[in-house]
Nucleic acid binder design. Structure first.
Lengths: 296, 296
DNA sequence: CTCTACTCATAAGGACGCCTTATGGATACT
DNA sequence: AGTATCCATAAGGCGTCCTTATGAGTAGAG
């Protein structure tokens, strides 16, 4: 594989050949005529052949130059097209890596709104429990939970993790309504192993609550638990923020205002280096604006 | 026209994408792995999109990167091919710009020999009376006459311009042979206006020779005059070097050893900057070698 | 026929791009 | 566990490449 001449020189040659003028080429490339002259000379020395004949008021390609020019033009057109396409495709698709819970309960219902505001942006959701690693995953932004911000990433705190018992109206009615925290202990709980229970009951003065129900694997996915609660299968301890619509519409009841809080918080994150990428700014502004309005 | 990212970075990306490895790419390009890493980062920042996912023991293209890679490879292959072809065509054709006389009388009969020694070289002759201007003419070497070397050009002196009267044997016999310079004055001279006559006759002690014959336009082309002399049309004053074969074979007679010399000399010239181009070296070595042997 | 305008060439000087060396972190293989 | 291999990063220096400034040559205009 023969080594190519300096690419900068080829670039300059291409423009000069196209214009038949060093001066015009310099204009196009945003440099001085002297620089063009220099680069052409470099290239001519490199191929050990004159590429232009210097006529009084113009330059014309030599035979060798004339054979070279179309190929270089073609090559640069290919690159041009490829990078233009890249720009489009890269700018036009926003990939969000998010926790399933947040995706299902909050983000998905509102994505339509985002699309309306940014019709040229396509959104791709990566719903995964794993922490996003921007070095190994093809994502633009991530939504994840953590106690502290990550170094090297821009981290916007969305809200603290908080929770309170919830159940369906029918289930509540089955025990004549929930008046005191103790009333909850009569009903099956969806995941007795969830540490949130002990925290919450402690907040209302109950130290060792005897919970009824199965010890399921929440696996950190509140969304499924929420569905089960909605179906009246038991009492769940959920994040009110995620179930606001259901609470407002009465499909779900939060009997007590007492909410427990977790050291974990929800964060929007993305690489420092990409803070100014338009689609990322757009999503950040939209998300923070909406969260700010709702203002949990 | 969108501005392309730095070409060096694209070049590196192409190799890295092809190998799926920064280290391998670095080897191919003859640089360090750190340099590759740097360039990829530059490119990624430029397109504001990761192009590789950094996996444990390898890198793999992102979607955007994968779309970009084939195009870049294609573009570089085109350039590669174009420059390879250029090299061939530029190296394979030697263009000689020469004075018609030298071409016709000396060079052309010997070019076959040069071709034998350099079968891969094609020779193109530009036979013109004009001085070669390497900036405006597509020539590799020139053969021209001049009093002094040209600045900026490599100039090999071939021989001084020299001359002596010549005629055909038949013409000489028609006046009973040429014994003294005065005998020449009985015969028609092909160009009475040629200044060489007065110089030569002066050398043999004749100050104001009364020449018979027409005042033609030699136009500096000895070749045609030589043909006329061979045909017995008159006496010419010619450069013995150019008519060596005819003299040796007796088709032409040089009655006197006295030769006039001119301030002009014959030179082989080519641009300083191209002194090391193989085809030019080949021609120079061949020509100087041959001239040296003949050793005028 | 001179003067102007436009071309490209060249020299000098400086900035910053790019590459190198050196090191560290991470992971797979033995 | 230890080693080898991969990529990332920091620091630093060299060299490329660009700019400014000037010159030479020619065409076209007055």
């Amino acid at each position: 594989m023969m080594k190519l001449p300096p690419l900068a020189a080829i670039r300059v040659f291409e423009a000069a050949a196209r214009h038949g003028s060093f001066t015009k080429a310099a204009e196009e490339l945003g440099m001085t005529q002297a620089a063009v002259s220099y680069q052409i000379k470099v290239l001519e020395e490199r191929v050990a052949t004159p590429l232009f004949l210097r006529m009084p008021r113009q330059v014309v390609l030599t035979e060798v130059g004339a054979r070279l020019a179309p190929a270089t033009t073609e090559a640069f057109e290919i690159l041009q097209a490829a990078f233009a396409a890249t720009r489009e495709s890269a700018d036009g698709v926003l990939t969000i890596s998010t926790i399933p819970t947040f995706a299902a309960t909050w983000l998905v219902p509102r994505l339509g709104h985002f699309q309306m505001e940014h019709p040229s942006l396509a959104v791709r959701l990566q719903s995964t429990r794993d922490m996003v690693d921007f070095a190994q995953q093809e994502a633009d932004v991530g939504i994840r939970t953590s106690k502290t911000p990550w170094p090297g990433l821009v981290c916007h705190k969305l809200f603290n993790s908080h929770f309170s018992p919830m159940l369906s109206p029918a289930l509540a009615a089955s025990v004549g309504g929930i008046k005191t925290p103790e009333d909850l202990l009569q009903l099956p709980v969806l995941d007795t192993g969830d540490p949130w229970w002990t925290i919450w009951f402690k907040l209302v003065g109950i130290e060792n609550p005897q919970l009824i129900g199965d010890r399921r694997n929440r696996l950190g996915d509140q969304h499924l638990e929420g569905r089960a609660v909605l179906a009246g299968q038991g009492v769940g301890i959920l994040t009110p923020f995620f179930f606001k619509p259901e609470l407002e519409q009465g499909q779900l009841i939060q009997p007590f205002d007492v909410v427990g809080t977790d050291v974990h918080a929800y964060w929007l994150v993305y690489p420092e280096s990409r803070r100014n990428v338009p689609k990322i700014r757009a999503f950040r502004d939209w998300l923070l604006g909406l969260i700010g309005e709702v203002n949990i």
